[in-house]
């Protein structure tokens, strides 16, 4: 090997190791973000010529009923998905014991997260089925009327979110179980001597120590809520009458849907979704930056 390499290898080596990763990531992730932004200023069917339309796609969005429905549903998703965090904590506290066989229980509780959302969606569509689904059998045996959850405009989004909360709660549970493992036993004992118990202990002694777990749980839950595409596509295909659309799904529908390929309009929706996500990504990066500097 040449003397130049020998002299400079500590300066060159990182770039050598980074090159393939950066090339792939730039090609498939970084550059497409900017391309999408660019496409959002065009009218384009994906095949023929593009026509520059400036801000027209965005202006059209402002008047698009379906866009507002999707946006509203995204907000509902974001808010209700957060329930996975306390629910996960609750399950974790329930399972944080050392009785026989508890390890098996923990892994079985985690099960829903491992299986595909396609399967989760199918399972729940079936659970909600108006004629023989378990939900409606239960409702009717209690004397209520059956609700065709997935065909009802008022219930459909909540029904899909409930399906999504199932694996998401499992995810938060595992984060908290790991967090609880690392809680300092001495602090707990000291607090016990001071007569701290139950909820007070949880709030003042345990939760502060679970902060890293809570942070990760919030991050993955927000991302999960904004990425909600699979369940909507499988359970309702956006219906009934588009009432369960979310931005991620509406974008797909516009770009590749049955109504023709409107790539520019779809890209504009994606840009809006990206900007919403960017708020969270920036907060995450900011926290990471602070942690890095604090080391």
């Amino acid at each position: 090997m040449g003397t130049y390499w020998k002299k400079n290898q500590q300066r060159l080596a990182p770039w050598l190791f980074l090159a393939p990763g950066i090339a792939m990531f730039a090609l498939y992730v970084i550059i497409p973000i900017f391309q999408s932004m660019n496409i959002s200023f065009y009218e384009w069917d994906g095949l023929g010529d593009r026509t520059w339309v400036g801000m027209n796609n965005y202006v059209e969005l402002m008047d698009d009923e379906a866009f507002y429905t999707s946006l509203k549903n995204n907000v509902i998703w974001l808010v209700l998905y957060m329930l996975a965090i306390p629910a996960g904590l609750f399950v974790a506290l329930f399972l944080n014991q050392t009785v026989r066989g508890i390890r098996i229980y923990k892994s079985l509780f985690f099960f829903p997260f491992v299986i595909s959302q396609v399967v989760v969606g199918l399972v729940f569509s079936w659970f909600y089925d108006p004629s023989f689904g378990l939900l409606n059998i239960a409702l009717m045996s209690l004397g209520f009327e059956a609700i065709p959850v997935l065909a009802d405009e008022t219930w459909v989004t909540y029904g899909i979110i409930a399906a999504g909360l199932w694996p998401q709660t499992a995810y938060c549970m595992i984060l908290y179980l790991t967090g609880l493992n690392a809680v300092d036993p001495e602090q707990i004992e000291a607090a016990r001597l001071d007569n701290a118990k139950g909820l007070k202990m949880l709030w003042y002694v345990v939760l502060p120590q679970l902060k890293p777990a809570t942070f990760i749980a919030v991050v993955v839950t927000v991302i999960g809520a904004l990425r909600s595409f699979d369940l909507v596509s499988i359970m309702t295909d956006g219906g009934p009458w588009g009432s369960s659309r979310v931005l991620a799904f509406y974008m797909y529908e516009q770009a590749f849907g049955e109504y023709g390929f409107r790539m520019g309009y779809g890209a504009a929706i994606a840009v809006i979704l990206f900007l919403i996500m960017m708020v969270y990504i920036s907060a995450f990066l900011f926290k990471m930056y602070r942690d890095e500097k604090g080391r």
Binding site: I30, P32, Q35, S36, F229, M277, L285
Partner: peptide
């Protein structure tokens, strides 16, 4: 550029798939 590149990877991992969809399909 270390931290900057690292943050690029982290941020990219969180972006919504839809913003990549049209260009990636095209590519």
């Amino acid at each position: 550029a270390n931290l900057l590149l690292f943050f690029m990877f982290v941020a990219g991992n969180f972006v919504p798939f839809q913003i990549l969809m049209v260009p990636v399909r095209d590519l």
